Amino acid sequence: MRRTVGTLADGREILYFDDTPGAPERTAADPRDLPRNVNASQIRRDPLTGEWVVLAAHRQTRTYKPPAALCPLCPSTPGRPTEIPESDYDVVVFENRFPSLSQHAVGDTEPGLTPRAPGFGRCEVVCFTADHTTSFGALSPARVRTVVDVWADRTAALGALPGVEQVFPFENRGDEIGVTLSHPHGQIYGYPFVTPRTERMLSAAADYLRAHGRPVMGDVLAAERADGARVVAESAHWTAFVPAAARWPVEVRVVPHRQVPDLPALTAEERDDFATLYLRVLGRLDGLYDRELPYISAWHQAPTRGARDLTWLHLQVFSILRTADKLKYLAGSESGMAVWINDVVPEDLAARLRAAPARYGH
Rank of each mutant, 00 (worst) to 15 (best):
R354C: 10
P118G: 09
L282F: 03
E110M: 09
D19Q: 07
H314S: 04
R80M: 10
E95V: 06
R45D: 12
T82E: 10
G228S: 07
P264L: 06
I296Y: 01
A206V: 03
T109E: 15
E292Y: 15
P192E: 01
P303Q: 02
Y64F: 08
Y278F: 14
D343W: 11
V255K: 04
E83P: 03
A240H: 10
A275R: 12
D219V: 03
V179A: 07
A206N: 03
S76L: 02
P243Y: 00
S335G: 13
T276R: 10
C74D: 01
E171N: 06
T239S: 07
E171L: 05
F318C: 07
A205S: 15
D30P: 02
P357L: 09
C123G: 08
Y360G: 08
I177F: 13
Y360Q: 11
T82D: 13
V281C: 01
L263I: 15
E124T: 09
A268P: 05
Q301D: 11
R62S: 02
R271T: 11
R322D: 12
Y329C: 04
S203D: 15
W238E: 01
R44H: 06
Y295E: 03
D175I: 12
A240F: 11
R225H: 01
A229M: 09
Y208V: 02
L139Q: 07
R200E: 13
R12P: 00
R12N: 12
L8F: 03
L263A: 14
T133R: 14
R284M: 09
V53T: 13
V220C: 01
T49G: 08
V317S: 09
L202E: 12
A246N: 08
V5H: 11
E165N: 02
L202P: 02
S140C: 04
R200S: 13
R80Y: 09
L293P: 06
R308W: 08
V220G: 02
D30R: 06
V345P: 00
D262C: 14
L8W: 08
R305M: 06
V126G: 03
T311Q: 13
G283A: 07
T267H: 11
P184L: 12
K65R: 13
A142P: 00
R308T: 15
V91Y: 07
P21Q: 11
A302L: 04
D88S: 14
A298L: 04
V242A: 04
L288V: 12
R116T: 15
D18N: 14
A233R: 13
A152F: 01
L181R: 01
L139R: 00
E347F: 01
G287H: 11
L349E: 01
V231C: 00
D348L: 11
A351L: 08
R284C: 07
A226Q: 10
V91F: 09
A229C: 06
R143L: 08
P346L: 05
A130F: 11
A130L: 00
L8A: 07
V255H: 09
Y329G: 12
W238V: 06
A9F: 12
F120W: 08
W248N: 05
P78N: 02
D348T: 15
